[in-house]
Amino acid sequence: MGGLRLYKRYFLIQVKSAMQYKTSFLLTTIGQFLTSFNVFLGIYFMFQRFHAVEGFTYSEVLLCFSITLMEFSLAEAFFRGFDTFSGIISNGEFDRIMVRPRNEILQVLGSRIELTRIGRFLQAAVLFVYGIMKSHVLWSWDKAVTVLFMLIGGTAVFSGLFLIYAAICFFTLEGLEFMNILTDGAREYGKYPISIYGKRVLQFCTFVIPYALIQYYPICYILEKNSSWWYPFLPLLAILFLIPCLCLWKFGVHHYKSTGSY
């Protein structure tokens, strides 16, 4: 049986479990909606005072923020197993995964699917629509495809980061907080186009961790600040980031097998 079918089975069980606690599900979803709302408020108040930053207007920043948030919440919903991997290691669930004849990654993904993240995604979608209405972007099919590529590439990059986080859990359960720089930090500071943080940050986010490939460059294409034909494809290039992440994960599993949960 294919991995996809098995994932579907996991997914259905998760939906069924979530529906056991409808009120709690609803409240958490609303909570998810609220928490990122603060970030939006931050942007809103700043633009009550300023008209543009680094040449980006309010509605343009909104488009950038909402797409980044969608990327993040998609990754967070489906790759939640990696996001909470320290728990899976410390409660012995990973031992259970190892005694089953299936790929470890598939099982980890299936074991946690966080449907309440739909709250965050919904908010991002609403802001996206709001941004579209406020902005003067003339939409065409190539721009729409660029957004789609951004969502795919962005989900991949964030998932890769979660994967790195999980791989580190094999070595230590302490000090994982610094990974927040790369995950939550990217979500938090990805609200503005990366160029506003200066040249060096932009270089780091282009060549080390490809945030700019899923945010700044394609956004520039959509906003017609740069019309190079290859800008829309940069988010797809960012998917390559998953390769080193997977290697690190493999290395982590290897380490786990030689030290167990000690």
Binding site: F50, V53, E177, F178, I181, Y189, Y197, V201
Partner: peptide, 21 residues
């Protein structure tokens, strides 16, 4: 240690953001 690194990083980015504005 992780906390220090995180906070230094976040502080830096935050200031860069305000600088842009």
């Amino acid at each position: 240690l992780a906390g220090i690194a995180t906070q230094a990083f976040w502080g830096g980015l935050e200031i860069l953001m305000f600088r842009a504005f």
